[in-house]
Design a protein around this nucleic acid. Structure first.
Lengths: 199, 199
DNA sequence: GGAATAACTGCACCGGGTCCAACAATTAGA
DNA sequence: TCTAATTGTTGGACCCGGTGCAGTTATTCC
């Protein structure tokens, strides 16, 4: 399958590890790509073979959760109510995050000085999640403005989920499961949209 | 009040207009700050006296709406239910956007090629709105996890509102009022959170 | 006619990101 | 075994957004 070609000398995880160290040592802003590449033993350009941008390093885990969410969405049984389906898929995805090991970026964002960067680059990620929910939801809703409602539900649910993830990460190593935080805020949103539109 | 000092030679609106023209002519990405400043008749550095970054140009109207939202929030009568208060303030803010004149960025984002940039820089703005709602809401909710719920509600409502704004802008010049789009999706979110938490 | 003040300008610099032409290491096939 | 195709790596040049600063210009107050 992998045919000819020079084998990869440095792996993605090595760059991630080097970056995490440097971010913790001296903060995100003061760490240059040059330094990350150097610690990983590769050239600056090679970094860009593995990551499209510096901020991509912050979102590795979350990007993985999007794949998990997409898989959970297609696995929803057809006879389930669409809104319950979304809740089901979200809980399923949340189970992938063990209570003990929250992503480093979420727990150490203060020492990394990374909050500005998270704000600056987070929306693209969030919208990717929302798009996944929306594409699941849109064809399964009825009514004239199903597309509009699907997008609104997707974005609203995602907002609630973001709050849950933030709370979960902030709760420290003895935190409850992400799932329990999630259900407390996702469920209300979905029940609000459960009844067909009145007007 | 304005004492001594050299008077401003070029105004913010002039830079905005020059930028809008260039974005429409050749797209956002291919327009440099140098070009914008040149068309407005100032130096590149002067641009940064008026805008902190290139992307700030895209959010002028939305930034104004945040001020409007904050003012609407503090004007809410104390006897109103907090969640109804949020809805009230949002509708109030929406009325500031006439149906005929949606912001250029929202209607022309395709020809400006600006969607990537909106995704890249939109979260900071969205969170500013959410923070405003959250700070209004948090002290007015009861229960153990009032802070958590306040943030979740703020983010969820904002997601729904974003969907409404998007739909409104996409609907073309004969669109209905933003308010009508807004209430269709914001209300369900708030009703979902209306009942006190069960557990 | 000076100070004091505030806007404007030019210049140098940093760092993220792109592009490209070389080069190195591997495999498939003649 | 030699060669070609393939793929990863590297260095260098470049663009542009953004920052810092020192110096200039235009204005008001005394």
């Amino acid at each position: 399958m992998s045919g000819a070609g020079r084998p990869r000398a440095s792996s993605q995880p090595m760059l991630e590890e080097a970056a995490s160290e440097l971010f913790l040592e001296q903060g995100y802003a003061k760490t240059t790509i040059e330094q990350i590449a150097q610690r990983a033993g590769v050239s600056r350009n090679t970094f860009f073979n593995y990551f499209g941008s510096k901020s991509d390093l912050l979102w590795v885990e979350l990007d993985a959760s999007r794949s998990a969410l997409e898989m959970a969405l297609v696995a929803i049984p057809d006879d389930l109510d669409p809104l319950e389906g979304v809740e089901h898929a979200l809980r399923q995805t949340a189970r992938g995050f063990g209570a003990a090991r929250a992503p480093l970026v979420l727990t150490q964002w203060e020492v990394m000085g990374v909050d500005d960067e998270l704000r600056a680059t987070g929306l693209a990620r969030a919208l990717a999640h929302a798009d996944a929910i929306e594409t699941y939801l849109a064809p399964r809703l009825t009514g004239a403005d199903a597309g509009f409602r699907a997008r609104a539900i997707a974005l609203a649910v995602l907002g609630a989920a973001a709050a849950a993830v933030g709370r979960w990460a902030a709760a420290g190593p003895r935190r409850e499961s992400l799932e329990s935080y999630l259900e407390r805020v996702v469920h209300p949103v979905l029940t609000g949209f459960a009844t067909p539109p009145i007007r």
